[in-house]
């Protein structure tokens, strides 16, 4: 058994850990594993070229970009933000669960970058969560931090476990392309549907955690006025500080 091709795996791991340009890392890894396997340059180039061409289905999603780009130009994101702002006056648990559900459903329909940490969490969800949790008395600093962190976590969970149900998403086509090259033909739809059970489980688990979190916040509220603790250096977030996030349609 020739173990030298494993150098290719090492290149991927080290390249990603050192945060080198991922495209370059992957190309170098392919070249290294081919050379380590003792392939000639001509064979290796043909292998890379053929594999690349037969995986081109993975870039089909760029056809959605003119549509999404046009809609964004006419305010699609602003519309989504207005929607989320409409969740105001909910309790903390209802607000976060509604956002979780909305984020998952939007991602399932391919609208992955409509929301995000810069687009919706920082300007809307986090300040709204704090306001909802504040109730009559302001939160102490550690609770305020935990509320914010939970808002960001809710965005991640909603995004990750929604996007895989969208059949033009990279993950689905990556799985399909991998099997196709190994002679197993699958329809992307079949793969996307198998992401549904996990999507539902993710919603239930995270929603329950949100409910528990709200309960623990209320229990820690023992009736004495919550003074902002002396070391409470963490000020409430301002709403509306909208950052234009980059379109990191990368992956989870």
């Amino acid at each position: 058994m020739n173990y030298w091709p494993l150098l290719g795996v090492a290149v991927v791991v080290i390249g990603f850990v050192l945060k080198r340009n991922p495209v370059l890392v992957v190309v170098v890894a392919g070249v290294v594993s081919g050379l380590a396997a003792g392939m000639g340059v001509g064979d290796l180039l043909a292998l890379i070229g053929n594999s690349f061409v037969s995986n081109r289905a993975l870039l089909l999603f760029v056809l959605t970009l003119p549509v999404i780009g046009l809609l964004e130009h006419y305010g699609l994101r602003e519309r989504a933000q207005a929607w989320i702002a409409g969740f105001r006056s909910m309790t903390l648990a209802r607000l976060l669960i509604a956002y979780l559900g909305l984020r998952q459903v939007l991602s399932m329909f391919g609208l992955i970058d409509l929301a995000g940490h810069a687009q919706t969490v920082r300007p809307l969800l986090a300040p709204m969560s704090e306001a909802a949790a504040d109730g009559d008395r302001p939160l102490d600093a550690p609770s305020r931090e935990r509320v914010r962190a939970l808002a960001a976590a809710t965005d991640n969970v909603g995004r990750f476990f929604g996007e895989d149900v969208f059949l033009a998403f990279g993950a689905v086509l990556l799985i399909q392309g991998f099997y196709e090259r190994q002679g197993i033909h699958l329809e992307p739809l079949a793969i996307a549907l198998w992401a549904l059970p996990t999507a539902i489980a993710a919603f239930v688990i995270h929603a329950l955690r949100i409910v528990w979190f709200q309960r623990s916040l209320r229990e820690s509220d023992d009736g004495t006025p919550r003074a902002n603790s002396p070391d409470g250096t963490i000020a409430p977030l301002d709403e509306g500080a909208v950052g234009r996030g980059d379109h990191g349609r990368s992956q989870g």
Partner: peptide
């Protein structure tokens, strides 16, 4: 990236990784 990683999967399979 997804397209290249799928390519890498094929290359890994072909080179014995």
């Amino acid at each position: 990236l997804p397209m290249l990683l799928a390519t890498l999967g094929s290359v890994f399979a072909a080179t014995g990784v």
